[in-house]
Design a protein around this nucleic acid. Structure first.
Length: 588
RNA sequence: GCACUUGUAGCUCAAUUGGAUAGAGCAUCUGACUACGGAUCAGAAGGUUAGGGGUUCGACUCCCUUCAAGUGCACCA
């Protein structure tokens, strides 16, 4: 639409002798109830024209109509200049841009971006909160890729610390040598079971100590089992062979389990970082900060940064005993990542409870003069709530990721069978289809919502398959493919079409917005933009489909054109859904 | 207490980043091809955009304030 902006700038110049920037021209799609496809808001121009918005709009419209051959007409309503582009413009656009295979393919922009997501703890299985994180991270990575970035997906695994020792210790005490092989249990679930067991025992001991007169605080510190866990952590840090071996074994169980969940979710990673390898990083940065005077040392030897001038607090970066804290690690890891990949941007997909942490982290790196600090971005998302309240993995009130996936597949199966659509499917095809539909429903449900908003998930009200849902869009695709497969053969060759029906033009119009939608989703880091867009595409197609016959079109020309239009629509749907990590079936 | 985030139809979400009469889906009610696939389409009803003030041609959007919900304010990660 650049040519309209250009023409508008020119028109204002000739009419009112005022030089505008392209950005001063406010273009927006015309509302459905009015004639036209593109609208210019004329209010900003009235101070140059010194005329009413209506008059200004009419004058500019007149000039545009004469100057730009694609403009077929215009009308002005309350200061909004609605422009109608000629059908020939839309037909050309369709054949020149939308129908070719490379539609919405961005050229590489030469920039590199890292998307870090998932970041699980190795002491328990993944739950619904992780699912949101994984789907978001994967989708944002795909969107950036589509926008022309070179993308590195990374996963920083939290594989060390006291919480890991808890499951290890509980397994040692109560496990009787159980393994995933001996129990048939998924590795991450087995380990998670012992994490819960630890907590149970810990609580028991606390209650016991309290009954002997200790305060809650004392009891929490003095419970034998927590002391043992702390000892185990020290042994781990000292490199005690037995502890390390146990740690390695149990982590392998967990990774095996995670691998299966990741596969079911359809997410993947290019680079794994492990906290056991990065937790000592950042010490150099502390020294560097001290030298540069960015950090300061207190009398007890602890090192801090003072961010009060920026409206934040003082933040500790090294303990008085010389050891690192979480922030130190993250400073070091950020630098390590940059050294590894020299990316222009780095996105952290982490829940919004860490907003403050990342604000501080980025600010410190900026103050340290890291050139790459301005490319850091915290993609913060709201937590997933259950009707009963917050999920607590220690208390077992979680929606487990694997259970959820299985339930979605089951629901997809029931729905599909009830509709009687799979008579001639093989078992393998059925399994695949149910997975595709179930995951489509789940992913769409989670991704259509703006990431920063909290999400309420009611497990009893299973995810819908009708209306604004993944399966609705999948169904639209399958139906198009079905029609196309009945058609005898048609190509991409241009057919001369003079007039478009409204539903056809509306469909072309919305398809044409795909590239800019990708850019918008990329710059706002929001899969929801894509999700809402592809829904509009599906709706526009369904409307077209109901009003116009494709295979029984009035004449051969219309038939060919509609087949091409349907084919282009199917490709946009497929591509857009792919950006959300959702597959679309050929039939369902 | 301080800071950050959120608040839109009964429910779940939109609103082109300051633009027109705030739009969809679910649920409710009414309709629609001899099925190019009805997981569809058309329509009805449903709103003081949490409340109040301000800024301007124009506010769900920006500012102030009150209220509600959530999160964060460790020499934990």
């Amino acid at each position: 639409m650049d040519f309209i902006i250009e023409a508008a700038v020119k028109a204002v110049k000739t009419l009112y002798q005022t030089e505008l920037n392209d950005a001063d021209v406010n273009l927006q799609p015309t509302r459905k109830e009015f004639e036209g496809q593109i609208t210019i808001v004329t209010f900003p121009f009235t101070r140059f024209s010194r005329k009413s918005p209506e008059q200004t709009g009419a004058e500019i419209g007149e000039v545009l109509k004469n100057d730009v051959k694609e403009i077929a007409g215009f009308n002005v309503i309350k200061g909004f200049l609605n422009i109608s582009l000629a059908d020939s413009y839309w037909v050309d656009k369709f054949y020149n841009e939308i129908l070719p295979d490379d539609f919405a393919d961005y050229k590489p922009n030469g920039k590199k971006v890292m998307v870090e997501y998932s970041s699980p703890n190795t002491n328990k299985p993944l739950h619904l909160g992780h699912v949101r994180n994984n789907l978001l991270g994967y989708s944002v990575a795909e969107i950036l890729k589509a926008d022309g970035y070179d993308v590195i997906k990374s996963n920083l695994v939290n594989d060390r610390g006291i919480h890991i020792c808890k499951s290890m210790l509980a397994w040692q005490k109560f496990g009787n040598g159980e393994t995933p092989e001996s129990t048939g249990e998924k590795g991450d679930h087995l380990v998670g079971k012992y994490y819960v067991l630890f907590d149970k025992e810990y609580k028991k001991q606390i209650d016991e100590l309290k009954s002997f007169g200790q305060t809650e605080e004392e009891a929490k510190k003095n419970a034998p089992i927590i002391k043992e866990a702390q000892e185990m952590l020290q042994q781990w840090e000292a490199g005690n062979e037995a502890v390390i071996n146990l740690w390695k074994t149990m982590n392998l169980w967990v990774y095996d389990g995670f691998g299966k969940t990741y596969e079911a979710l359809g997410v993947n990673f290019d680079k794994f970082y492990y906290e056991s390898e990065t937790y000592l990083l950042g010490k150099d940065i502390v020294e560097e900060g001290l030298e540069r005077g960015v950090f300061f040392e207190k009398a007890d030897g602890s090192v801090w940064i003072d961010l009060t001038a920026d409206g934040l607090d003082q933040k500790l970066v090294r303990r008085s005993d010389g050891t690192s804290v979480y922030m130190t690690q993250d400073l070091g890891t950020a630098e390590e990542k940059y050294k590894n990949f020299h990316m222009d941007e780095s996105i952290y997909v982490v829940g919004n409870e860490q907003d403050y942490h990342f604000k501080v982290l980025f600010l410190i790196l900026e103050k340290l003069g890291k050139s790459w600090a301005k490319g850091l971005y915290h993609l913060s998302y709201g937590m997933v709530d259950l009707p009963s309240g917050k999920m607590k993995s220690r208390e077992g009130t979680v929606v487990d990721a694997d259970d959820l996936i299985a339930e979605m597949e089951q629901t997809a199966k029931e729905q599909t069978e009830a509709l009687g659509k799979v008579e001639n499917y093989s078992e393998a095809e059925k399994t695949e289809l149910y997975h595709t539909i179930g995951m489509g429903a789940l992913k769409y449900f989670l991704l259509k919502v703006d990431p920063k908003k909290r999400l309420l998930f009611d497990p009893n009200e299973s995810v819908d398959f009708q209306g604004h849902t993944g399966p609705f869009i999948q169904y639209t695709h399958a139906r198009i493919r079905s029609v196309l497969s009945r058609a005898e053969g048609f190509g991409n060759q241009k057919i001369s079409i003079e007039l478009l029906d409204v539903v056809e033009r509306d469909l072309i119009l919305i398809l044409s917005q795909f590239p800019e939608t990708i850019s918008q989703a990329a710059s706002s880091h929001s899969p929801a933009v894509i999700a809402n867009y592809v829904y509009e595409v599906a709706k526009a197609f369904n409307k077209f489909y109901h009003e116009k016959s494709i295979l029984q079109a009035e004449d051969e020309t219309s038939k060919q054109f509609r087949l091409q239009l349907s084919s282009a629509t199917a490709r946009v749907i497929k591509k857009a859904m792919r950006l959300l990590g959702i597959e679309v079936p050929e039939r369902m």
